[in-house]
Amino acid sequence: MSDRERDWDFYLRTVSDSARDSSFADDPASDPSLLHAVKKLCDFCRQEEKYSEDLVARVYPHINKLFQRATVSQAQSSSPTGILLLAILQFFLDFGEVVLHDADPSLRTFSVLV
């Protein structure tokens, strides 16, 4: 397994764990590595032209669930999740066509929260 594959697995696991029920699930902004993981996964998806659609399809469910948790926690928490939400929105905008995600509702949700 190459370093790149190990990094991919690590970042995907980080996002997946945060999207599921965990100690950070109620407040995604409390996990300092989460923003970095989301950005790195976006970078991986951009760089891998040949396998990009497969990578995006693997990441999307976790990112989508994380967005839902972050929007709920934003209303209940004093932790700033705006930067995390922006990174997730960028993923939706960049790869929405691949996974058939309409980013407009997510953008409206973000504009209401911020």
Rank of each mutant, 00 (worst) to 15 (best):
D94K: 05
K50M: 12
F67D: 03
D17N: 14
H36G: 06
Q90T: 11
V59N: 03
R58Y: 04
S18C: 15
L93G: 02
T71M: 05
L66H: 00
S78Y: 05
Y11R: 03
S77R: 14
L55R: 06
A37L: 05
H62M: 06
S18P: 00
V59W: 01
A75I: 15
S33Y: 14
L86C: 09
R6F: 06
K39W: 02
D9A: 11
S18L: 02
S73N: 05
V112A: 14
S18T: 04
D43F: 11
S111E: 08
S52R: 14
L35T: 07
S106I: 05
V56T: 06
A75F: 08
F44S: 03
E53Y: 03
E48L: 11
P80A: 13
S73P: 03
S52L: 06
F44P: 01
W8V: 02
S16K: 14
E5D: 13
R108N: 12
L85P: 00
K50D: 13
S18M: 02
V38S: 04
A70M: 10
D27R: 09
K50P: 01
M1V: 13
P28D: 15
S52Q: 12
V59D: 00
I88H: 04
S18W: 01
V99P: 04
P28C: 15
D104I: 10
L85H: 00
S73M: 07
Y11P: 00
R6M: 07
F91S: 04
K40G: 00
A19Q: 03
Q68W: 04
K65D: 01
L113C: 00
S111P: 00
V72M: 06
Q76F: 10
A57Y: 02
D104F: 01
E53M: 06
D43N: 10
S23D: 15
V56Q: 05
L34V: 11
A103D: 08
D27G: 03
L84P: 04
D27C: 15
S78T: 10
L113K: 02
A87D: 13
S16F: 11
F10V: 05
Q68S: 12
Y60T: 06
R58C: 12
F95M: 02
R13A: 14
Y51M: 09
H62N: 07
D17L: 14
S16D: 14
R69Q: 08
A103M: 05
H101Y: 08
R46V: 07
T14F: 03
Y11L: 02
V38D: 03
D102P: 05
R13Y: 09
E49D: 12
F95V: 02
A19P: 01
Q74V: 09
P32S: 07
E53C: 06
I83N: 06
Y51T: 11
